[in-house]
Design a protein around this nucleic acid. Structure first.
Lengths: 114, 114
DNA sequence: TCGATACTTAAGTGCATGCTTAACGATTCG
DNA sequence: CGAATCGTTAAGCATGCACTTAAGTATCGA
């Protein structure tokens, strides 16, 4: 779970596109059909389908077809995974930076004793 | 700041590669030279340079050259941007779910009055 | 039943990405 | 100086990605 590299890759890759982030923003206000997602976008429907595929394969989104309408919905679990991966790294990094700065001030003090 | 789309794109794109995530993991234990970063990796030095460029352009990392050695270091600010973008979507989504459940219970109450 | 609606599939194009090898530049050290 | 070290640039190549148009399929509604 800490190192599901492929899933992380797909998730960040899915987030790395402004169109897909737009779709996610829309979905965070509630489920939507494919054409509702496509409507505000300046691209063709097949292009939207391809973005949707990327989102589903990343696990950020799931969809279900009823009649002729496919309804798309956010899947917050994967969003949490990405968020906590970042959060972990960030705190690690900040701790490291603190250590580094402490180390630098040690160097400085040593310098002052000469 | 709420919608610095290009920066978000570059950041998620930088995170969407296992090699770059590996470099970041190494850097979270302290600054490193280019060849220290390249050493554990099964790719050529120019390839590492290109990954480094992506990381710098995303703002996740910064580097400085002294003599013939370039030292690379983490820059945690940009990571926060990405983290809070995700967090916003996730909390929006959760709020939406709450509203939806409230709506369902309204329907249920209406049903009981029949 | 027939036309409109809502997707879906297929095929192709252009540009970005990740990698390589081959050279070059710029320190450092014996 | 001359060789080794550390990094950098350039060129080329294979694959992937985002998009398009054209042509489906399936469902709904009058």
């Amino acid at each position: 779970m800490l190192n599901d590299s492929l899933a992380l890759t797909r998730t960040f890759q899915a987030l790395a596109d402004p169109v897909r982030r737009g779709m996610l923003a829309r979905l965070s206000r509630g489920p939507a059909s494919v054409s509702e997602l496509a409507n505000p976008l300046p691209i063709s429907l097949p292009a939207v389908m391809q973005h949707l595929k990327a989102l589903e394969e990343s696990g950020l989104v799931r969809s279900e077809k009823k009649g002729r309408v496919r309804t798309v919905q956010l899947e917050p679990k994967r969003l949490e995974t990405a968020e906590s991966w970042i959060a972990e790294r960030r705190t690690e990094w900040e701790a490291q930076l603190d250590r580094f700065e402490k180390y630098l001030s040690t160097l400085k003090n040593d310098g002052e004793t000469h």
